[in-house]
Simulated scan of single mutants.
Amino acid sequence: MPFISITSKPTRTVLALAAGSLLLGLSGAGAAVADDGPATQIMSNEQMAARHPGAAPRPDDDDREREYALGKVVSKGPLTVRSEPTTRSRELGKVYPHHKVRILCKERGEKVGDNHLWYRLYSKQEAWVSARYVKDLTPVEWCRL
């Protein structure tokens, strides 16, 4: 391979090559730095339930006699958990996009978008989310009075 002198290249070409090399070097270094970050903290089921009402249990939980349905949050941002199936009721917390939630049952409530269904979350307190933003992964039964 013949030796090419940098001095024979125009200044713009040399600067463009240097900038490209610098960008490639920085992107590689950035990936290496990102890998050295802290390990992800794993919350206990009690901590998860306190922070995210209705959040689905981790896979190591005993699901032999499941008393709830599963759903996946499909909202673009955090979804508000409410005390009743209406947007005017008290806020209890948030569930986040792509998280799975445990659903106890469904009931008609205030219309959100074009959907009047609300899901009651499997929780110690009465907690509701609009079904407009939750995709049911397993069949959800109607709430019994």
Rank of each mutant, 00 (worst) to 15 (best):
M48W: 09
R66G: 15
K124A: 02
P57I: 08
V73D: 06
G37P: 00
R12L: 02
R82D: 09
R82Y: 06
A127R: 04
L15H: 08
L137A: 08
R51M: 07
G30N: 08
E84I: 00
G54H: 06
L22V: 01
C143W: 13
R108V: 00
P139R: 05
V95H: 03
A50T: 03
S27T: 02
T80C: 01
D60R: 13
F3C: 04
P38D: 14
V129D: 06
E107Y: 05
F3A: 13
Y122Q: 03
D136S: 15
S21R: 00
A19N: 13
A34K: 04
S27R: 09
D63G: 12
A39E: 05
A34F: 09
G71M: 12
R102M: 15
G54C: 05
M43R: 03
M43Y: 07
V81N: 04
L24D: 09
R102E: 12
G71N: 10
L145Y: 14
G113T: 03
V81C: 08
L23F: 05
D61A: 14
K135E: 06
G30V: 08
D60C: 04
E65C: 10
M48N: 09
E84C: 12
D114A: 15
I103D: 04
Y68N: 08
L24V: 11
L137F: 11
I6G: 09
H116C: 07
T86S: 15
A29Q: 08
K9A: 07
N115T: 03
L23K: 01
G109L: 02
P2V: 13
D61E: 11
E46D: 08
K111C: 04
T11Q: 08
D35S: 10
D136C: 05
P53H: 14
I4H: 00
A56Y: 05
S83L: 10
G71K: 14
S21V: 11
R90K: 15
V129F: 10
G28M: 06
S21G: 12
V134L: 00
A131Y: 11
H99S: 00
P97T: 01
E110C: 00
D63V: 07
A131T: 00
